[in-house]
Simulated assay, not measured.
Amino acid sequence: MTPLRTPARPLVRAAAVLLSCAASVPTALAAAPAATAPTGRTVHRVAPGGSVQAALDAAAPGDVVELAAGRYPGSVTLATDGVTLRGQGAGTVLVPDPADRGSCAQAGNGVCVTGSSDDRGAPVRTLSGAVVESLTVAGFPRNGIGAAVTDRLTVRRVSVRDNGMQGISVEMSTRTALTDNEARDNGQAGIFVANWYDRKGGALETRGTEVSENRLTGNRIGLQLRRVRGLTAEANLVSGNCGGVFVVGDDGVPRAGALTVRDNVVRANNRYCPPIPRLDSVQGTGILLTGTEDVTVSGNRITDHSGASPMSGGVVLYPSAVGAPNARATVTGNALDGNLPADLADRDPRGTGNAFTDNACRVSEPAGHC
């Protein structure tokens, strides 16, 4: 058994995550007409009562649509390359409008950031360089922010809460940056990154997507990475969900994986969520790998998980819903304590080439991984 110790990096990074909340609410702007910024970009300013969608429709690539503090009923669609949708922090709130008949509202989402695809899901037009920052999206029946077929999308300093499915959903997108966001009390994942929500098939190569310094709590799953590759999830604080971080694959080719989960603080994800199709009940899971290959889990602090689900434990390897095993997972340099029934659990009897090294923990299944 390796003596328990606390890695320095995840706790330092997590402290920075928590402190970042205090700096995320700038002073509200008064309503004003569009103006040219010093950079040459046009800033379209919207006050409560104004049309956010009209401003987005008028924006050209490189423009900014800036919302003053206040409530904005209705869903909006950002579909122009290089446009920034910016609020004034927590005081700028997008909420549902029952009278909204736009396509984003009909899909149940708050903010839609969309390219286009054909009937088989293949990209037709990729939306590039969009930014959503410094606002709150709350109470929508599906996703707070729903993005699909994008490249270099940035979502930062956004609060997504009380949405029916995902807080932030990013599908079929590459080189995404999701940083310094708060996702809480959403019906499914706080942050969800996938090829498609409603399709199987091979994993998407995300070309370096980064999910970092987010705070994820009160969701079914804090962070779910499903059928994706080439991604890093680091320095996130994941607590108080049913499950913490889920990396999910199946028998599609290419396999999900070739990604890194590092330097996160994952603690006490002990809410109970009942079974749903293709997923057993979830309670007390820190980091789960299922049906993946070549995933590295390193430098994380994973504590205080407890549950009766077959996926309960600190770091758990588990076969996918279609029986696909994990291959060549590397679980190394993590600090684990107080996870029941085990800090490290390899419950994947068909898994191959999986390695557990230099982890500080007390109990493993089977014995010998600590």
Results as ranks from 00 to 15, higher is better:
L11S: 11
A16D: 15
C21S: 11
C21E: 10
P38E: 08
V46Y: 09
Q53Y: 02
A54H: 07
V64F: 06
L67Y: 08
G70F: 07
G82K: 06
V83H: 05
L85S: 10
Q88I: 05
G89P: 05
D97E: 04
G102R: 01
V111M: 02
V113W: 05
S116G: 12
S116I: 07
D118G: 07
G129L: 08
A130G: 12
V132E: 00
G144R: 02
A147P: 15
T154R: 13
V155D: 06
R156V: 04
R157M: 01
S159F: 11
V160P: 03
M165K: 11
S173M: 11
A189T: 09
R199F: 14
K200S: 10
E205L: 13
E210C: 01
R215N: 11
L216M: 04
R229C: 11
N236A: 06
N236E: 07
N241G: 06
V247Y: 04
V247G: 06
D250L: 04
P254G: 03
R255D: 01
L259S: 05
V265L: 15
P274W: 01
R278K: 09
T285L: 13
I287G: 07
V297F: 02
G299W: 00
S309P: 15
G323S: 06
A345Y: 04
D346F: 01
D346S: 10
A355T: 12
